[in-house]
Structure formats: structure tokens, C-alpha cells
Design a protein around this nucleic acid. Structure first.
Lengths: 350, 350
DNA sequence: TGGATTGTGTAGATCGGTCTACGTTTTCCA
DNA sequence: TGGAAAACGTAGACCGATCTACACAATCCA
């Protein structure tokens, strides 16, 4: 028999609070709180009685109230764009490790630029999340430092160094080297690179900057500085498609492209498909990220795999350490791996 | 000059609270709160003074504390699997509409079955989220009713009817009909259907159940009840691949398949690719969801588009209405659309 | 055996907001 | 011009936990 206090049929049922439990068990709120936290100073008898009361009342502590004083046991993951399937791989790694440590993970997305990103991160801080992982965020390193001064932070996908936050990134220098060396070993010399230039300014440490540097370094190391050819565009399917158009129209077109990201590479492939350029017979294409679509047999895109699950797990591990008090910044890189499929072959005439 | 109370260099800076603002502006806490909420009873002068103080102190209200009494301005989106790219489309729709109404959206994922799903949803409730959207959740309708009795809820991707929550779903009956009619019009008669059977039990209202029913209905309507052929498996790439193997080995194999979901269809295509079955010359394949990979020119998968953005937006709109007090349950379906690409053609010999 | 130590439990301040109840001005209008 | 109504502001309870300080009982030990 329930009181119809609002006059409506389906009033939401009131949750039991810590006071309800205390009253039901005949003890003080403080005692219940101790049981809840497994704190010192509880007899076995009392523990049993309180736990029985919690069970019969269906008690669940309010995470909000807990967060007011103590910690919220919540980690925030900030993502720029969930459409990129690589994100879900990173998130899987983060979640697995976080849940091992008793943290709940909530994901926040902000796809419309720096202002929205800032708002989302502030929303996480406002909710007193114990720590946050930022995946490939925009903004300057200073912006990130400021965020990290207020809340334990790990940045995933941007390279260090940093003062107040940790970084986990794929070794993009090495990844670019893998790509260039692979193409050179197939006989390519005119190898182009597509560099991401988006709405937001490129900052040092961003993957597009490091991959471009890795490309240039590797070209020089292979004695191909004369052939360095960097196209600027967006790492989206559309960006890749228009880059394909540009490359084809060159007087002396390249024979291969390091597209910088799989989404761009897929766009390049689409552009070539429309233009009648055969891959890999006429042109070799390499992506980066090894997203799901790259692995489809119809696509077979040669790509660089970043072992996203491990990166995610590492980020979560570092974040937990930082929450537990570590102060020194840690910057890690994980080794990438070239996955050779069907979009790379010797250049025409070789 | 900051006190080094912990002995460590980088103690996190204390945030300004409502009391700090009140003191700085020389008014009461209640006054600041009124300004914050835009409540009645504030003079222009006071409003200006308080807002100035908030700005100089860099004040941001604690969402946690607000949530303790009032609402948290937070919506939770529960997702079973973020790897499915259709989810990010739905989420985009939800976010757009939610942000229009001043809500922050946080996403929670639980990929490991019913128990983890329950924990995630409880975590959202524990954080006093004002409402939640459940995308294709497991569990019985009763489970969902119980959740919805505690928190305003909209279920996305499962069909009604329901008492205490709203539903938004694609019209899967119509979608299956589009597929079957399309294949029949091309001349196919032996059309198979791949039905999802996963770890969790299939409940009425789940898309796999409705799509199967739509398939059967459409087959009957076309006078093909003799040809009804339902294979059970998982709607994953692997499930599709093994279904491809099964179909090929039939004594009298089908000439087309309604794979139920794009992920499964991609698996079927991969299986056929390996087995040397040509698509669409030997076999027609239709997916469902119109995910990104289906649109790649190399793939060109015929599929059913569910206009995810609109569904997401509608779900958010219903949720906001429900938070604002609507009590009657609303069940909506949105019309799907067939996208014909290159994996469907007349059967061999026609 | 009596003071110190250890174990067990409680009271109540606290976190940072919201919101009701009420006091004080100011404005309105018969 | 005087009383009602409207406008403005404040005090303080409240939300549901955590956590410090302390009271009381039991145990220890010289």
C-alpha cells in the first residue's frame, strides 16, 4: 500500500537512504557509512546486521552524495568523434582496466570544436569525476596543463612532454618509418603524404604533426628528400577523396601515398575507384589506425596497427596511479605494427 | 603565495564555491543561487554584481551539489556495444537534441551481458541522471519497466508496447518487407534470413524478432511460404561468415539472403569471397542498418537505412518530455528506407 | 588494581548547492 | 494617504553521504 502523494499513478519510488538503513538496523548513520566503506571500527555482529538491512531495503548509496565529500569512483573519457571506430577500441581498453580498479567509466563526446570540448571537460569536472582521459583533444599543451592542474588527467593520442598530465601515444615516428620503408622496399620513390589540417590549429604533439615529421625523417634517411611531397587536407573520407584528385592531376604524380589515417585512405581509395586508377597496380595506398573497414576483404587496406586495447588499458592504469597520488608526469609510447594487405605493391613498371 | 599544505608542489587548486561568490559580491548564498537559476526575485543591480563576482572568481557550480536537491541536467545513454558504428549515429542525434534542451549527455557502455548492463544502468541512476536512453538493451520487458519506474526512460531499438517507458524503433516489419520485395522483384524465390541468437535470450520487441517476423510475413505475402528459410546465428562478422558456409553447403542453396544486420552481411560477403562465390552474380546479399562500411565503393552493400540521427533526436525529445512530467507511454516507429547498391541483382539464370 | 590501550559506536560538522518561509522595501491604487 | 500587492533579499533547513572528534566499554599489563 503506497501513498499517492502527488496524485499521479506512477510516482517514482523513493530510494532508501543511509538514514533509512541506520534506522532499520537500529544503529547510527556513521556505523552504516563505515560498513559501506569497509572502514575500521565495526564488529562482525554490526556488520552483519547492517548488511541485512541494506539487502532488505534494497539500499544503494547515492554516488552523488558520496562524491560531495569523498571520491566519485567515476572516470570520464573525452572523445572528439565517436564515429571513428578506433575510439571504441581505445575505450574498450580503458573500461577493462578501470573496472578492475572499481571505477565506472562515462564517455563524453564533443564533435563541434574547441569551445564544445571545453564545455564537455568542464562538465566532467563539475561532476567531480576522479580523473579524465582525453582522447586526441584539440587545444594547446597549455590548455591541457590547466585542465590537469584541476583534475588527474591522461592524454591519449598526443605526444608529451608534459608537466601535470600523463600521455600515451603510438610511436608515430616509428609508424611513419614503417610505412615509408615498406613502400621503398617495394621500389617506390615518389611517396606522398597527406597531412591533417582541420578546423583547429595543429599543435606540436598532435599525431598529424608527428606522423608528418616521421614521414620526412624516413624519406631523408632513404635518400629521398627530393621526393618529399606533403599534401594538406582533412583526415576524413572527403579529404582523402579530394587528395586523390589532386595527386592524379600532378604532372609527375606520386606512385604511393601515406594517407596518415585510415579514414583518409578509404577516401583516397574511393577517389581512385571513381577515377579508374587501379590499386595497387597503378598506385599504392597505406592508411594508419587499422580500423575495422580496413580489414574487410573487399578493402584490404595496408595500415599501421596501434594496438588500441593496450593503449587504452595503459592510459587507465596511469590515470589510476595519478589519482592515487603520483605527481611526476609520465609519457609513454607504444610500438606500432605494420599490417600489409592488398593496397600496396611495387610501382608500375617495376 | 599558496600554502603547501600537503608538502607536494602541485596540489590541486580549490574551486570557488557559491559561498565564495556570495562573500565576494557581499550578498547571501540564496541570492547567488537565484541568479544561477534565473529564479524570481533578483534586481538587475544584484544580478550584475553577482555575475561580475562569478566571472572574476572563475566560478562554476558543482553539478554534484546541484543534483543533490534539484536536477542534475544530465542524461545517460546506455549502449551495449560501441563498436557498432550505428550507435555513434544514434548518439549524435541524441546529443544534438539534448544539448538544445540544456542537458549534458554521458555514454555508458556494457558489453558483457545482462549483469554488467544492470550495473551500468544502476550507476547512472546512482548518479541521479535525470533520464536515460537505453539503446538495444538486453533483458525482459519487465526488467525495463522496473528501471523506468525509478527514472524517466526511453528505449531505443526495441518495439513497444510498454507502460512506464517510451520506445523509438525503426519499423522492422516494413524494413524486412522492403528487402524481400526488392529481392522478389529481381526474380529471387529462395531467400534466406539470418536471425540473431546471442548470449542473451531473445525477447519480443527485440529487432531480431521483429525483423524475422517481417521476413516471414513478406515471404507469405509473396506466396513463398514454402521457401522460408531462417538460419540462426550471431549478427557479427563471424556469425555472417559461418552462415555463408552453411548456405553454400545446402543441397538446394538460396540465391539471396536477408542478413538481418550489416555486420552479419559483411561477414557473409567475406565468407563468399573466400569460398569464391560471386556477389551479386551468384548470390545477392542485403544488410540492415546502413553502416559506414556498407557505403564504401569496394563494398557497395544494399542495406536498409534507419535514419539514426532522427531516431536519436526523437528519443531525446521524448525523454525530455517525460522528465517534464508526461506519464503516458509513447511508442513510435520511424520508416526505414532501402538503399540499393551493388550486392543485389537478379539470380543466376534469369 | 588502576591507568593505558584497544575496540566499538555515536554525534554532528561538512561538502555545495536548492528552496521554503519570512522580513523589509517599494510601488500601486482606491 | 493608508493598506494591499509586488519586488527584493536573507536565514537556515535540507539533500545523502563522509569523516573527525569523542564517549564508553573491554582488555592489557605493570
Amino acid at each position: 500500500m503506497r501513498t499517492l502523494d502527488g496524485g499521479t499513478m506512477s510516482e517514482h519510488v523513493k530510494r532508501a537512504t543511509i538514514s533509512d538503513v541506520a534506522q532499520h538496523a537500529g544503529v547510527s548513520k556513521a556505523a552504516v557509512s563505515k560498513v559501506l566503506r569497509g572502514a575500521y571500527g565495526v564488529s562482525g555482529t554490526m556488520k552483519a546486521r547492517v548488511e541485512a538491512s541494506m539487502a532488505t531495503l534494497g539500499y544503494r548509496p547515492s554516488a552523488l552524495a558520496r562524491g560531495m565529500r569523498g571520491s566519485s569512483f567515476t572516470l570520464g573519457v573525452f572523445v572528439v568523434d565517436l564515429h571513428n571506430t578506433f575510439m571504441s577500441v581505445l575505450i574498450e581498453g580503458i573500461r577493462t582496466e578501470a573496472e578492475l580498479n572499481g571505477y565506472q567509466v562515462f564517455i563524453g563526446e564533443a564533435s563541434r570544436g574547441l569551445a564544445q570540448q571545453r564545455q564537455m571537460i568542464e562538465a566532467m569536472v563539475d561532476r567531480k569525476m576522479d580523473g579524465i582521459v582525453l582522447i586526441a583533444p584539440f587545444g594547446t599543451a597549455d590548455d591541457l596543463e590547466e585542465i590537469a592542474r584541476g583534475t588527474p588527467t591522461v592524454v591519449l593520442g598526443r605526444h608529451g612532454p608534459s608537466h601535470s598530465y600523463d600521455t600515451v601515444a603510438s610511436d608515430d615516428i616509428a609508424g611513419s618509418a614503417l610505412i615509408v620503408d615498406h613502400l621503398v622496399s617495394l621500389g617506390h620513390r615518389r611517396i606522398a603524404h597527406l597531412m591533417q589540417v582541420g578546423r583547429e590549429k595543429n599543435e606540436s604533439g598532435m599525431p598529424q604533426v608527428v606522423r608528418a615529421k616521421g614521414y620526412v625523417d624516413a624519406m631523408v634517411r632513404n635518400g629521398l628528400e627530393q621526393e618529399i611531397d606533403v599534401l594538406e587536407g582533412r583526415w576524413s573520407q572527403e579529404g582523402g577523396r579530394s587528395a586523390a584528385g589532386l595527386m592524379v592531376q600532378r604532372k609527375n604524380p606520386p606512385t604511393a601515398v601515406h594517407a596518415g589515417a585510415d579514414m583518409a585512405a578509404l577516401g583516397v581509395l574511393a577517389g581512385f575507384h571513381e577515377a579508374g586508377v587501379r590499386v595497387p597496380e597503378d598506385f599504392s595506398v597505406v592508411g594508419y589506425d587499422n580500423v575495422f573497414a580496413a580489414s574487410l576483404p573487399q578493402v584490404g587496406l595496408t595500415s599501421v596497427d596501434q594496438s588500441g586495447i593496450e593503449m587504452g588499458a595503459l592510459a587507465a592504469k596511469l590515470l589510476v596511479e595519478r589519482i592515487q597520488g603520483r605527481q611526476e608526469a609520465v609519457s609513454t609510447v607504444v610500438a606500432p605494427r605494420l599490417v600489409v594487405r592488398r593496397t600496396t605493391a611495387p610501382p608500375p613498371g617495376v
